[in-house]
């Protein structure tokens, strides 16, 4: 059991410099919650995809991170929100290869495969919030570094 210190945060996503802060925060928070190396890498990568999505398609926004628990499991919940144009067709956006911006079109669909839980709340004209949760299923390896 660990405390939520260093896990709860709200970070702005306004420039590509902020993407680095997002990745750094998620990496450290996941390490604190006992994520294994692979799960942590997946979560940081997903956060990078989603934050870039917020920046490029939502015109900027923020990421909120929080610790969540279920029984003896601990996890990290990340919510990326923007006040951009919203996504008209969520299902289509989630399919691979769909893209409106710069990239390989793997953004949302790819990020979804890297996390355990994934939800989109989007209203055209009002913005989009993507919330993901991953659980630290594997105990931290002894050999692991931060």
């Amino acid at each position: 059991m660990r405390t939520a210190e260093g896990v709860e945060a709200c970070l702005p996503i306004r420039s590509d410099m902020d993407l680095m802060w997002v990745r750094q925060h998620v990496r450290q928070a996941a390490a604190r919650l006992g994520f294994g190396l692979v799960d942590r890498t997946k979560l940081v990568t997903a956060a990078s995809e989603l934050a870039r999505n917020t920046l490029v398609h939502g015109g900027g926004g923020q990421m909120e991170s929080a610790r969540v628990t279920r029984g003896h499991l601990q996890g990290l919940r990340l919510a990326f929100s923007d006040r951009g144009p919203g996504i008209p067709d969520v299902d289509r956006t989630l399919s691979d290869g769909y893209t409106t911006g710069d990239g390989l079109g793997l953004g949302l669909g790819g990020a979804r495969r890297l996390v355990h839980e994934f939800a989109i709340d989007s209203r055209p004209g009002a913005g989009t919030t993507v919330t993901v949760v991953s659980w630290a299923l594997r105990p931290p390896h002894p050999r692991e570094e931060m």
């Binding site: 692979v38 997946k42 793997l106 790819g110 890297l114």
Partner: peptide, 11 residues
Amino acid sequence: AVAITLVELGL
């Protein structure tokens, strides 16, 4: 870990 993530990402 990077390779596994890229494959999962579909890249």
